[in-house]
């Protein structure tokens, strides 16, 4: 089962942009193992995974989730501020380029601190995805799309985007 690092899609612009949010909760046990300066800090690697899921859904939606979209390369990843329990993270992913082999995406990470109203830009994560059936010649993969599991469909359903996968 896939572990989701986004809670909800809040904006979808077909073939162009997808925005998702994650609420960082102290009930998530990994935070208790990542205390820095006395504060539980969301690890940047998990923020990158959140962006990968956001951008991956966007890339997958272009071909109605028929392609097996795999994160192949982190082209750029910067983070300027820590994210802690109570904060909300916004992942804003856009397609930079896409063809039959894969896709390049550009992503911004914003943070809204607990109790606040304003969003603050805190990071940038650009990724490269591979359509593995088109790139791994001679390598056989299962017929079914193991990338976009039921978990992802739940996220689409929640956002009223279930028709994208039909």
């Amino acid at each position: 089962m896939r572990w989701l690092w986004i809670d909800c899609i809040i904006k979808y612009d077909a073939d162009k942009q997808l925005v998702a949010i994650k609420n960082v909760s102290l009930s998530e046990y990994y935070l208790h193992d990542h205390i820095i300066g006395g504060k539980p800090i969301m690890p940047f690697s998990l923020m990158i995974e959140g962006m990968a899921q956001t951008a991956g859904i966007l890339v997958g939606s272009v071909n109605k989730f028929k392609e097996k979209v795999i994160l192949a390369k982190i082209a750029k990843a910067t983070l300027d501020s820590d994210v802690t329990a109570g904060d909300t993270v916004r992942f804003e992913a856009s397609i930079d380029n896409i063809d039959e082999s894969g896709a390049a995406t550009c992503g911004f990470i914003d943070r809204r601190v607990a109790g606040g109203d304003a969003w603050e830009r805190v990071g940038r994560v650009d990724l490269l995805f591979s359509h593995i059936d088109k790139n791994m010649a001679g390598t056989e993969f299962p017929e079914h799309n193991f990338v976009f599991s039921d978990n992802f469909k739940m996220i689409l359903d929640t956002a009223g985007l279930a028709s994208l996968a039909e």
Binding site: N97, S101, S130
Partner: peptide, 28 residues
């Protein structure tokens, strides 16, 4: 291998042309 796809995308953007699969690097 995956860097080649990255390079193809960046060349397309930098020089404003399209590159077909297998055109720059041999495949399959």
């Amino acid at each position: 291998s995956i860097d080649f796809l990255d390079i193809v995308f960046r060349l397309e953007k930098t020089f404003d042309f399209k590159i077909s699969q297998g055109e720059l690097f041999p495949e399959n």
